[in-house]
């Protein structure tokens, strides 16, 4: 064989060997393990930690809220749709509670021709314009029916019942002389109907209130509620030595959607708390925290509150005027 041919062949063989070595060196170990790709990459993709944890993840700690949510219309809307992905919660802090519910709720409920008919839809320009949705709707049990009790009683008859049964503790004018008991003058009627019915049925218990409520007929409850709702609250704003009202004001932003900016809320299903005695407010919040008073909304709200937070909130609300000049108009 001529020398130049054998050299050329040698060169080819050398180049081939070099190519094979380079390929062996550069190809990842798991390439071709399952096909024309890096086998290890599949495991790498699958190893990523999920951000959305599902409602099951929330259930153990937020049991009551979960129970309420899963029994109501929004059960198809998972927790993390509104509160964000739960990855890192609770270790890294709280999940957001949506502030602008008007914006959030209309994502699904603004009336559009494009939306399927069965979807409940509202016209934001007509449906309580400017009002936050959660003033009337509990996001975890959004249907209003049964939430706001009807109040249609006889105020004069209520006044008599009040004088006979309630005035000793709650004051002749519905303003309690004792710091442990709530003022009732000017309280929302629907709230009073609800809470008295709860005492009567045993859903809510209190050593003093349970026997009294059990002695009331449904008509008497209606009359009382009508009477108190129409009574002007004469309680004076108070200074509390228990806490710091300024710190309480900052915390009260979380309560404002239901209880109003200064303790007078727009939804009659939920109580006014402005001007109540600080001791009463502290006791109530602690009772919610301990589970002695049962309410799925409040249970979630108070869970994260310390004793100091509670004292500060009580100091803020007790210092508010319970009968502001421009009384908040009650929505029917």
């Amino acid at each position: 064989m001529p020398r130049h041919i054998s050299r050329l062949l040698l060169l080819f063989v050398g180049a081939g060997i070099l190519a094979l070595v380079a390929r062996w060196y550069f190809t990842a170990d798991t390439f071709y393990q399952f096909g024309h790709f890096r086998g290890k990459a599949v495991g790498e993709i699958a190893a990523k930690e999920p951000a959305y944890q599902t409602a099951r993840y929330c259930e153990d700690c937020h049991t009551e809220r979960h129970a309420q949510w899963s029994a109501n219309n929004h059960k198809s809307v998972n927790c993390e749709v509104c509160h964000g992905a739960a990855k890192g919660h609770p270790e890294n802090g709280k999940l957001p509670i949506p502030a602008d519910t008007r914006k959030l709720c209309t994502l699904c409920h603004e009336r559009m021709a494009e939306r399927p008919r069965p979807q409940p839809q509202i016209d934001p320009a007509q449906h309580s314009p400017g009002q936050q949705c959660i003033v009337c709707h509990n996001p975890h049990a959004p249907k209003l029916a049964g939430v706001v009790a009807k109040v249609a009683g006889d105020a004069a008859a209520g006044a008599k019942t009040h004088a006979a049964r309630c005035a000793d503790c709650h004051g002749a004018a519905g303003v309690s002389p004792n710091d442990s008991w709530p003022n009732l003058a000017g309280q929302h009627g629907a709230y009073l109907v609800g809470i008295l019915a709860a005492y009567k049925s045993g859903a809510q218990t209190d050593a003093m209130m349970s026997p009294i409520a059990q002695g009331l007929s449904d008509a008497e409850i209606q009359n009382l509620a009508t009477y108190y709702a129409g009574l002007r609250c004469e309680a004076k704003p108070r200074k509390s030595r228990l806490g710091d009202p300024a710190a309480g004001k900052a915390l009260a932003k979380n309560c404002a959607a239901c209880h109003g900016d200064a303790g007078i809320g727009g939804n009659p299903a939920w109580p006014n708390i402005a001007g109540q005695a600080p001791e009463y407010l502290v006791n109530s919040l602690k009772a919610f925290r301990a589970g002695l008073r049962k309410d799925p909304m409040m249970a979630g709200v108070v869970r994260g509150l310390s004793d100091t937070d509670i004292a500060n909130l009580a100091a803020f609300y007790s210092a508010q005027n319970c009968a502001p000049a421009a009384k908040v108009k009650e929505t029917p």
Binding site: I45, Y52, T54, S76, N78
Partner: peptide
């Protein structure tokens, strides 16, 4: 969401869809 479905979860969009 291959990292979810291989762990027995549903994809995030399916989890988030409120109307199925």
């Amino acid at each position: 969401c291959y990292h979810r479905i291989t762990k027995g979860l549903r994809p995030a969009c399916v989890e988030a869809c409120p109307v199925g």
